[in-house]
Design a binder for these strands. Structure first.
Length: 592
RNA sequence: CGGGGUGUAGCGCAGUCCGGUUAGCGCACCUGCUUUGGGAGCAGGGGGUCCUCGGUUCGAAUCCGAGCACCCCGACCA
């Protein structure tokens, strides 16, 4: 491709509304342009890189038996009603009517369509297992797109779906994805970790998220350096510190004016925070039926005072689709006193208690009266929870649930996820097969996603410098950026045109800067666009019989290469870069 | 949805507080000449619903009201 003919232009200055480095560089280098919040056009350079990512994904999916298909972007709402997700999912799914007044939705994922295909196509155990996948547009009306391609509303996702006769079969396909995903991310040049995750709207039990660790990430990951335990903070487990032991004492009301926080309270009564009980109120959203608004229920979460409540865990324990903090007037409406709420004597409230509460005797809890607390509150004797569960958030330094070492918290971007779905969707849609004995059985499903654009953004976050992008060879839009310093016909131009033609003929992808620009402009653009290898051809070098070959990722001046050796040296360098990436593709032990 | 911020040429910005010639600067773009190995120089030139609608006023980019868009933090989410 000739730069003079390239559709996009580079920008000297970044648009003011770009903050994340991947966003800034992809805009400046002319890879993409924003149309609306979370909606982007991908220009020729970006599309080339995206296609390469997609082809890496295809190769790995095909290698584990995947068959590529394409499913519709627009689905009839009835299909989503059958699985119930039409009601479970809120405004994130966009809905509209077609001309026949039929309810339709924009696809945010494809479990429903796959289960529908399965019920129509799969009749016999002989047809199983299957693995189908697609690379296709998703629309998720995210309330808060941000950071360029890291979180968008319209995006391309690779989603694959496994269909199996048995749970064991599902696990085989799940493990195949587990490794294939590492292969994909490594080939794209980014390190990732697989972490235990919440399954969210997918349901199911086992799932992993693949995290690229970076400060710009929005997910918090709990990791143990000692034993390797890693989990999304939403579900991360840890060992709670011991409670202060003692025989149960009689309850005793004490005046505690103006103690809205646990710290104030502990100080006033001269106890440790872990000797108190903390109450947090949420409104939980429950399944919405046709034509009816959200049904909300008050949830009262109780946890030991030294711990923090984890909303995802509370929602799961309470069976709610989502939570929001309760307002003071909602709390009062139930007869509780904000700041002094007691778990005792509440009615019509779902009480979720953390495991830490049950084992801790003689806690200080609210007295349900402004300015008063109760001492010596004991679980079981004085109050009961609807559910006792793990609803605590792990913090840095908390003891690892496996080995007891202090855990670390890091931030990450989720570039992929894998779910063992089981038969939730196939049961809902009646997707069954006949087993060897002629009995109908539910098809067992798994689903597996990778955000292609987000992955590309992570590659940029991982690989750039002050000059711009530094593409791994595997996803670079072009292999070679050929800079011709010639502004008019002459030896340099002839040599550049000749090399461009020769490399292209040999299958090397070349971006050829044939513009009549000053050298500085061309070098800066080459650095910004970030192709792995740059060749510079100028009259000065040619007079000495050399061209310059520089590797983008290596500092310093490039190498002077005799004209006659340039093609061979370029090919050798490209092979070397490929080999370096390939060396990162290794077996990763499977961890649940 | 809550909090904060920003909307003036393709990009970056000034002008707005305190209303008043023809709305300005840098980069980018076009023409010519010169220059030519790390964002060149000179000269000439094109490009604007000053986010939108309404109001105040002799007069609005500027003041008032409403709305919209985009960004950041949070809620939320994959």
């Amino acid at each position: 491709m000739r730069v003079s003919r390239l559709f996009s232009q580079t920008l000297r200055e970044a648009p003011n509304d770009a903050e994340a480095i991947s966003h800034v560089l992809l805009l400046r280098a002319g890879f993409m342009r924003q149309l609306a919040s979370g909606i982007f056009s991908y220009l020729p350079l970006a599309l080339r890189s995206l296609r390469k990512v997609e082809n890496i994904i295809r190769a790995e999916m095909d290698a584990i038996g995947g068959q590529e298909i394409t499913m519709p972007v627009i689905h009839p709402a009835d299909l989503w009603r059958e699985t119930g997700r039409y009601y479970d999912i809120d405004a994130e799914m966009s809905r509209f009517k077609d001309r026949g007044d039929r309810d339709m939705v924009l696809a945010m994922t494809h479990e429903e369509v796959v289960a529908d295909l399965a019920r129509k196509e799969i009749k016999s155990y002989r047809q199983l297992p299957q693995l189908i996948y697609q690379l296709q547009t998703k629309w998720r009306d995210d309330p808060r797109p941000r950071s360029g391609l890291i979180r968008v509303r319209e995006f391309t996702m690779k989603d694959s779906y496994s269909l199996d006769a048995t749970q064991e079969g599902l696990e085989v396909q799940y493990r195949a994805h587990y490794q294939a995903y590492f292969n994909i991310f490594n080939r794209c040049g980014i390190p990732t970790v697989a972490v235990a995750a919440d399954s969210g709207i997918m349901g199911g039990k086992v799932s992993h998220e693949y995290m690229y660790l970076t400060g710009v990430g929005e997910d918090t990951i709990v990791r143990c350096a000692e034993c390797g335990y890693s989990a999304n903070a939403q579900v991360a487990q840890f060992r709670r510190s011991d409670a202060v032991a003692g025989a149960a004492l009689p309850m005793e009301k004490v005046a505690t004016p103006a103690t809205k926080t646990i710290d104030d309270l502990a100080k006033l009564l001269d106890v440790e925070p872990r000797q108190t009980a903390k109450a947090v109120f949420f409104m939980g959203r429950y399944k919405k039926e046709e034509g009816v608004g959200d049904e909300e229920r008050m949830i009262f979460a109780v946890i030991r005072g030294d711990l923090d409540v984890n909303e995802t865990k509370v929602a799961n324990a309470a069976g709610a689709l989502g939570l929001r903090p309760a307002q003071d007037d909602e709390i009062k409406a139930l007869g509780a006193v904000p700041g002094y709420a007691a778990p005792m004597g509440l009615k019509d409230v779902l009480v979720i208690a953390d495991e830490s509460i049950v084992a801790a005797p003689n806690l200080v809890a609210g007295a349900n009266e402004e300015g008063f607390h109760q001492r010596n509150v004991n679980y079981g004797r004085d109050w009961q929870a609807t559910t006792v569960a793990d609803i605590a958030s792990a913090r840095a330094g908390d003891a690892c649930s496996r080995c007891g070492t202090g855990v670390e918290l890091t931030r990450g971007v989720e570039v992929g996820n894998i779910f063992q779905l089981g038969s939730r969707f196939t049961d809902a849609l009646g997707a069954r097969f006949l087993d060897e004995t002629g009995r109908a059985q539910s098809i067992i499903m798994g689903s597996y996603g990778i955000g292609v654009g987000r992955l590309l953004a992570c590659v940029v976050e991982h690989s750039h410098d002050d000059g711009g992008l530094v593409w791994p060879i595997t996803v670079a839009p072009y292999h070679v950026h050929l800079v011709s310093l010639a502004k008019a016909d002459g030896d340099a131009r002839t040599a550049a045109e000749g090399l461009y033609a020769e490399l292209t003929a040999r299958g090397v992808e070349v971006l050829y800067d044939d513009r009549k620009e000053n050298p500085g402009v061309k070098f800066n653009d080459a650095d910004l666009i970030g192709c792995p290898v740059r060749i510079t051809i100028g009259d000065r070098g040619l007079q000495n019989g050399i061209m310059e070959l520089k590797v983008r990722s290596e500092a310093g001046k490039g190498a002077e290469v005799p004209v006659g050796e340039i093609v061979a040296q370029v090919e050798a360098k490209l092979a070397q870069l490929r080999a370096a990436i390939e060396a990162t593709v290794v077996e990763v032990p499977y961890e649940v």
